[in-house]
């Protein structure tokens, strides 16, 4: 093996390993932050600041009975949680963590991400369908409708940055932000992308497919043990993915003053957005299903279209 191959394998392993550490770490972070915002302590017993609670949770998940309900469609039931993990991991392929630290710089980077996040909807639909349970099915239907409709604005909101950077590749988009982060010219795009991102990862306040208080746990009520764990990890990786994409597209990725290395800037910015995700969960109630749809199609869609048209006009004017 030559040096380039080894280097590449190192990056792949590093990204995979880093993500597998981050995903359970986020569970601890979320519980601590939620507790902080609710005047509690959260897990603080096991290990320093309670970090080892993650280990305890993981061990517990592994030793739980891995139950497949007799009424479920077994093959699909087992496949569904794998899909969510695979699609999220694939999406990370195109994320540039720092100059040179990227698994592959696809020239269709953003399109690849959009494709993968659409595939992620399958895990919800298949999981809810295979569970053969009315609550799961309801959650799956809601999830499908929510993810497909928010996919539309997500893609359209991104097109503004693509127009400005003149490329689908995330590395090019970050390089194009050397002068100014795209959050300033594309503020509307940023807000809409972030809202759509919350809906895509079906996090609170848009956790309508799960809706613990209405649908028990929605599409994954029949899942237990590590299969449930995979849905869980997929969700937390989804948060990381949306946060890092927001950073790449609107907040200059690894760009930042020189006193910190680029990778540290990227991680810092990403964690700021993860904290914002958790703050949203701590403060906002869940909207009704029809409210969510109305908000999407009647407000966000026209806004993204106007944003896209204005951006396109400005780009054309500058060229002409």
């Amino acid at each position: 093996m030559d040096e380039a191959t080894i280097n590449h394998l190192l990056i792949v392993g590093g990204v995979l390993g880093g993500l597998l550490i981050v995903a359970p770490g986020l569970i601890w972070l979320e519980r601590r932050l939620l507790a902080l915002w609710q005047d509690r302590y959260g897990p603080n017993r096991a290990g320093p600041f309670g970090v080892l609670i993650v280990l305890a949770d993981t061990i517990k998940l592994f030793f739980k009975e891995d139950w497949i309900p007799p009424f479920a469609d077994k093959v699909v039931f087992v496949m569904a949680p794998a899909i969510v993990m695979i699609t999220v991991f694939f999406s990370f392929v195109i994320i540039p963590f720092a100059p040179g630290i990227i698994v592959t710089d696809l020239n269709i980077g953003i399109l690849f991400f959009l494709a993968m996040s659409s595939m992620g909807a399958y895990s919800i639909i298949l999981g809810g369908w295979a569970s053969n349970n009315k609550y799961s099915l309801l959650g799956a239907m809601r999830g499908a409708a929510q993810m497909i409709s928010y996919e539309v604005f997500m893609g359209l909101a991104l097109m503004g940055t693509v127009l400005l950077a003149n490329s689908f590749s995330l590395v090019d988009i970050i390089e194009a932000q050397r002068g100014m982060w795209f959050v300033i010219p594309q503020f509307v795009g940023f807000v809409i992308f972030f809202i759509a991102g919350i809906a895509e990862t079906h996090r609170l306040p848009f956790d309508i497919p799960e809706a613990e208080s209405e649908l028990v746990a929605g599409f994954h009520s029949e899942y237990s043990g590590m299969k449930f764990g995979m849905f869980f990890v997929g969700e937390y990786l989804g948060i990381t993915l949306i946060s890092s994409l927001t950073v790449c597209l609107f907040f200059g990725g690894w760009l930042g003053p020189d006193f910190l290395p680029p990778l540290v800037w990227f991680v810092l910015k990403t964690f700021a957005f993860i904290a914002l995700f958790i703050l949203l969960r701590a403060s906002l109630p869940r909207p009704r299903y029809d409210q969510l749809m109305e908000f999407g199609w009647k407000i966000l869609l026209p806004l993204t279209l106007i944003n896209l048209m204005i951006t396109a006009g400005v780009v054309l004017m500058r060229e002409g």
């Binding site: 902080l36 915002w37 609710q38 005047d39 509690r40 302590y41 703050l279 949203l280 403060s283 906002l284």
Partner: peptide, 18 residues
């Protein structure tokens, strides 16, 4: 929405009840 997020955020500096 922004106001309620801000209020929640400011709870960071409150005394914990636990």
């Amino acid at each position: 929405i922004i106001r309620s997020m801000w209020i929640t955020f400011m709870h960071m500096f409150h005394k914990r009840e636990t």
